[in-house]
Design a protein around this nucleic acid. Structure first.
Lengths: 346, 346
DNA sequence: CTGTTAGCGCCTTCAT
DNA sequence: ATGAAGGCGCTAACAG
């Protein structure tokens, strides 16, 4: 039955321990810990000292129970791009520690289970709210069910704006428009797009921006030049091969994210089509892979981490009206784009 | 002041609500929820029904407070490889939901702050324990400080075995040995290694296995052929270039992880050295990037997710004695390895 | 088999 | 400026 070694801290100190050590009531300790006004400076100092000495940290669960105030927030994701998820996590974690909240992760295994899982999570932990990241934020019925259960929500990059729900986004349409324009400015006129999955709002926006740029430049929209992937590297392989084997293949391909753009490059390489000499490629996200593939990807830097951080802010601030915020993006030009081959030029 | 819509659930039901609805005492409800024996089937049914109707979920915080039993577990990581982190998370989350625990994430910004951060997290949330993943599990003094505070620990792939702490690992030495042997079997005799950072236990093991294989094959160890990276893609670039510009460059390079192996390939490509014709490359991890780069990487599949899941098991099981477990790996041969160029053959 | 009485650690009235 | 009750939602003894 050898118990803890001599110098051990034993079980964590409680508010009672501190009160006893500082010779005050627990209420006074409570006041000090919560930075309430009505405490004489010297008393406060004494309490702080005792707390310090005992290494006291308020038990957030007891605190939450008593005050009804939450200390957990749920981060919900199911994005196939691990870079995206990672960036979301980094942004959320940074802000959460500043806000004194802890993040519990939720990765619903399917959209069907999501509602049940999240309702359970929320009921069990009485958390401050949920941050929904793409594409789970667009799962049909999810938001309504959650709102119905009185769960606060902040959605990152939702497909459709909604009142009643805080949201943070960036202008995907504009970004897609601009990066397409970059291609057009280089002389490309036959440009293909590998769209993302319909379940992501971003997929639509990026396709919209793409089409707008073409139209605006007087380039006809050719349905033959549209393909769809699921944002994973693999999903871009077959569609790219099909595009490149077209009778009139594109001189540039806009992939809806970097993973798929990497797939485009891999496929081009496999077919012996050099990038960017014979094929320009652009991606979206500026994920690590953008500078791992060769040539490096021309892409759009999304402020993913910042969006997650802002979503957290909106969640805890959320007094009533739902706020919507928009963050800026950057277009980053790298080696995967060039002027199209001469023989294609008109 | 428009309040919740008619069909709203309002605030979550409590055990009292259920007891009232089922016309029993709250203790009986408690018993049913905890699946204790002594409840008449029909009573149990009635309670279950009421709980169902009210959509009741026990408040884990209240439960934890009262029972002293935790419902949170901390997952600590600071690995630069996002694939590694992702796999760890996936494995841990899957198991945690099976165990009815929630995971709170902790990513200490520095090894120095780690102790403080984690002690605070543990004191605040009274969690079941911490899962330490590489390299944070090897931070000097961390484990002692945590143990001192009576925090249960499970360490994934620690550098050094420790009593008193549950640990899950795989045989990195053996894996490195085997994959090096694969290179040797193909005819390579001048093989370089890009080691991982000294802060990772795995770095040492993999280097050890590598050296063992060379020695065992009668190949002299040439210090010139060792370089070091930090497991990131970028960190492999300069070292690789240096290796390839050697008077007697290696015909094969063993990078301690896939990200760095991708860096090796990128550098080789930049220098016009074709892989695998003139240079064979092997990695470690079988991360997504292994099949994104071209040629695909010959690598070692680590059971990362499984290790995390097992670590969780050990954490909650942890009756007293620390257990250590070892999981199996696989060597996966892909396109990045071949026999060395003829002119190098003896 | 079921209900009663405490109390987990803390915050919220209300007093003083 | 401080303290004494009461209770958050739940489980641990003990009763019956």
């Amino acid at each position: 039955m050898a118990r803890a070694p001599s110098g051990s801290d034993r079980s964590p100190a409680t508010i009672t321990d501190v009160a006893r050590a500082a010779d005050v009531s627990i209420k006074t300790v409570s006041r000090v810990m919560n930075e309430e006004k009505r405490v004489r400076p010297e008393t406060r100092a004494r309490v702080l000292e005792a707390a310090q000495a005992l290494n006291y940290r308020p038990n957030v669960m007891a605190r939450s129970l008593a005050a009804g105030r939450p200390f957990l927030v749920g981060l919900v994701y199911n994005n196939p791009s691990i870079h995206y998820v990672n960036a979301i996590q980094v942004g959320a974690m940074k802000r959460s520690s500043e806000l004194g909240l802890h993040i519990v992760m939720a990765e619903p295994d399917s959209a069907e289970n999501a509602i049940t899982d999240l309702l359970q999570l929320a009921a069990e932990t009485r958390l401050a709210g949920l941050i929904l990241t793409p594409p789970i934020g667009d799962a049909p019925g999810l938001i309504d069910a959650l709102l119905q259960a009185d769960i606060k929500l902040a959605v990152v990059a939702p497909a459709a704006a909604r009142k009643q729900v805080a949201q943070v986004r960036m202008d995907d349409v504009r970004a897609a428009y601009e990066i397409t324009q970059l291609l057009i400015a280089k002389g490309h006129r036959r440009i293909a797009m590998i769209k993302g999955p319909p379940s992501h709002g971003a997929s639509h926006w990026r396709a919209t921006g793409f089409s707008q740029a073409l139209t605006q430049a007087g380039i006809p929209i050719d349905p033959e030049l549209f393909a769809t992937g699921d944002f994973s590297f693999r999903s871009a392989l077959a569609p790219t091969e099909k595009l490149l084997r077209l009778e009139a293949p594109p001189t540039a391909i806009f992939a809806s994210n970097d993973d798929m753009a990497a797939g485009v490059i891999a496929t081009a390489m496999k077919l012996g089509i050099s990038v960017p000499e014979r094929l320009s490629v652009v991606g979206f996200d500026d994920s690590p892979i953008a500078t791992i593939v060769w040539p490096h990807l021309t892409t759009v830097r999304q402020p993913i981490a910042e969006m997650a951080a802002r979503a957290l802010d909106l969640l805890v601030a959320g007094d009533g009206e739902a706020e919507a915020e928009e963050l800026a993006f950057d277009i980053i030009e790298r080696g995967s784009t060039a002027t199209p081959p001469a023989f294609v030029k008109k």
